[in-house]
Deep mutational scan, measured.
Amino acid sequence: MTEYKLVVVGAGGVGKSALTIQLIQNHFVDEYDPTIEDSYRKQVVIDGETCLLDILDTAGQEEYSAMRDQYMRTGEGFLCVFAINNTKSFEDIHHYREQIKRVKDSEDVPMVLVGNKCDLPSRTVDTKQAQDLARSYGIPFIETSAKTRQGVDDAFYTLVREIRKHKEKMSKDGKKKKKKSKTKCVIM
């Protein structure tokens, strides 16, 4: 069974824990209790493949930012979460993405942009803004509501699919490099 290491990042209060708990335990946590770091595991079937999701729910508070490099190193894919009623959390996505790329030393890291709290009427981040940002990053965008469960499975499952595509691409690139290195030079 394939294991996928997913990391949920975003500013404090955007609903990272609520999304994760909704996926794992099928219930909505409405009281806000700032996370330092929590880890969850769940076995699911995605596109006919049974897999184990190892999900790291991270601290959004700035005082825990020193811990970010460590979990970013171990993560295979990242859910970059903002709240649709919090423009600052949307603007912060850029910083999370840049930090992930720096730590992973790669421009090509599996990510999904997630606009959470889409059940709320007080939207300050337009869907088109988020779609445009995701398009500019070359990553999928999904709106979710941890409260109603809308888009929750889709967000995590899409990230797994992005990781699969990335692994497939990397193995193809690896095979191309191996083929090239088999060419021999004969000096007579």
Results as ranks from 00 to 15, higher is better:
V125H: 05
V125E: 14
D126T: 09
D126S: 11
D126N: 14
T127E: 13
T127K: 09
K128V: 12
K128T: 13
K128E: 13
K128Q: 13
K128W: 08
Q129T: 07
Q129L: 07
Q129W: 10
Q129A: 12
Q129I: 15
A130T: 07
A130Y: 15
A130L: 15
A130H: 08
Q131I: 10
Q131M: 08
Q131T: 06
Q131L: 11
D132M: 08
D132S: 09
D132V: 05
D132N: 09
L133T: 05
L133C: 09
L133F: 14
A134C: 05
R135F: 07
R135K: 05
R135C: 05
R135M: 07
R135H: 06
R135P: 05
R135W: 05
R135N: 09
Y137C: 12
Y137G: 05
G138C: 00
G138R: 01
G138V: 03
I139Q: 08
F141S: 00
I142C: 00
E143A: 04
T144N: 09
T144V: 03
S145C: 11
S145R: 02
S145L: 05
A146M: 11
R149E: 13
R149Q: 01
R149A: 13
R149C: 15
Q150S: 03
Q150V: 14
G151Y: 00
V152C: 11
V152H: 09
V152S: 07
V152K: 08
D153Y: 12
D153S: 13
D153W: 11
D153P: 09
D154I: 09
D154C: 11
D154Y: 08
D154Q: 13
D154F: 07
D154M: 09
D154G: 09
A155I: 12
A155T: 04
A155C: 05
A155N: 02
F156V: 15
F156G: 04
F156D: 00
F156Y: 04
Y157S: 14
Y157M: 14
Y157P: 06
Y157V: 14
Y157T: 14
T158S: 05
T158K: 04
T158G: 06
L159P: 01
L159F: 03
V160N: 05
V160F: 08
V160P: 00
V160W: 07
E162A: 08
E162R: 04
I163C: 03
R164C: 13
R164A: 09
K165Q: 03
K165S: 07
K165I: 04
H166V: 10
H166R: 11
K167S: 08
K169P: 01
K169L: 09
K169D: 10
K169R: 13
K169C: 12
K172F: 10
D173V: 05
G174W: 01
K175I: 03
K175G: 09
K175F: 02
K175M: 13
K176P: 10
K176I: 02
K176L: 10
K177L: 13
K178R: 04
K180S: 15
K182W: 04
T183M: 01
T183F: 00
C185D: 15
C185V: 02
V186C: 06
V186D: 15
I187G: 15
I187D: 15
